[in-house]
């Protein structure tokens, strides 16, 4: 028996997210009394040995032209093959965009139960039981598998990253390609220099209180000192002040950063649904009655146009001193 984990890379780079998956898998494997094996797909420009720091002793590297671009069905086929070869009954995947597309397809091919939207390490391994988020942040549910084969799709930022020492051995592996109905990628348009929201540890978010897209410079400046991702409320993206990909909430992206700073956002229930899992929430709003203050850890009543630049200044001072 073993646990298999997808070590995703982005244009050849691993991220914190990758190592969170590795750690999640090695902890799960320990609970099951077995070992965890990583799977890397495609060209990488850094070594996968790093996975050893998060408890993996072995990484399988598959570099096959058929997997050059992401396709849910074909990737699922590759994973099902590797799971079979390595006698892996549990597969761990992080809930990135590709992870969320891969997991359901793989659950069919591997004849596995899929436990998704998981917010912590498994609470039991026999039967495999997890805590999952339900009703968009408004509840949790204990979900158990009734199968031997399982896939756990966890929400990024669910477990704290601990770095140990050690290096994993990297072996190349192949997969038997069969005829799968795939999609053909024509072009990729990546926003450069931005931290993707689902994995951002800190997020600075603006709402309609900021009055117009021209006022986002101060949001970006604050995000820059904090090394944070930027987000927005739904009306802001509906009005095209900011791209749709920044819209957080019940109908946007659900995030759980360590720090979420909401500026000029009222705190409507649908907005909170996507951000209330954040560890620490700061609300900055000119209206002392804004509902966001009920959901926040720290609040400042004030005009964002004065408070935000001051906050950026203070953070710069703090950084210089620490």
């Amino acid at each position: 028996m073993s646990v298999l984990v997808y070590l995703e890379n982005w244009e050849g780079q691993f991220k914190k997210n990758t190592w969170e998956a590795a750690l999640y898998a090695s902890k799960t494997a320990t609970m099951q009394g077995t070992e965890a094996i990583g799977v890397v797909i495609g060209d990488i420009n850094e070594s996968a040995e790093e996975a050893g720091k998060y408890g993996l002793s072995k990484v399988l590297h598959v570099n096959d032209a058929a997997l050059a671009s992401f396709d849910a069905n074909r990737y699922a086929q590759a994973f099902a093959h590797l799971a079979q070869e390595n006698n892996a009954s549990t597969i761990i995947i992080s809930g990135t965009f590709n992870g969320k597309a891969l997991a359901p397809a793989l659950s069919i091919k591997h004849n596995a139960a899929l436990l998704s939207n998981v917010v912590d390490l498994p609470t039991n391994v026999n039967p495999l039981t997890v805590k999952r988020g339900v009703f968009s942040g408004k509840g949790f549910n204990d979900l158990s598998s009734t199968e031997t084969n399982n896939i756990v799709l966890f929400v990024p930022n669910s477990i704290p990253l601990e770095e140990g020492s050690g290096a994993a051995s990297v072996e190349s592996a192949s997969f038997a390609s069969a005829d799968e109905k795939t999609v053909v990628v024509e072009s990729i348009d990546r926003v450069k220099g931005k931290i993707p929201l689902p994995e951002a540890e800190r997020v600075v978010s603006g709402g309609r209180g900021l009055k117009g897209p021209e006022n986002w410079t101060m949001v970006e400046e604050l995000a820059e000192v904090l090394e944070a991702g930027t987000a927005c409320s739904k009306p802001v993206s509906d009005m095209d002040w900011r791209p749709h990909s920044e819209h957080v909430g019940q109908t946007g992206i659900a995030i759980k950063p360590n720090l979420y700073i909401a500026i000029g956002i009222s705190g409507a229930i649908q907005h909170l649904a996507g951000v209330s899992a954040s560890r620490t929430i700061v609300a900055i709003n000119s209206d002392a009655e804004a509902p966001f203050f009920k959901a926040a850890d720290y609040g400042i009543v004030g005009d964002a146009f004065q408070v935000v630049p001051k906050l950026t200044e203070e953070l710069k001072k703090f950084k210089a001193a620490n």
Partner: peptide, 16 residues
């Protein structure tokens, strides 16, 4: 392939 156990609500936030 799964069975649901008990439901819980998020812990209430301490005062801002």
């Amino acid at each position: 392939k799964t069975s649901t156990g008990s439901f819980t609500k998020p812990a209430p936030k301490s005062a801002v």
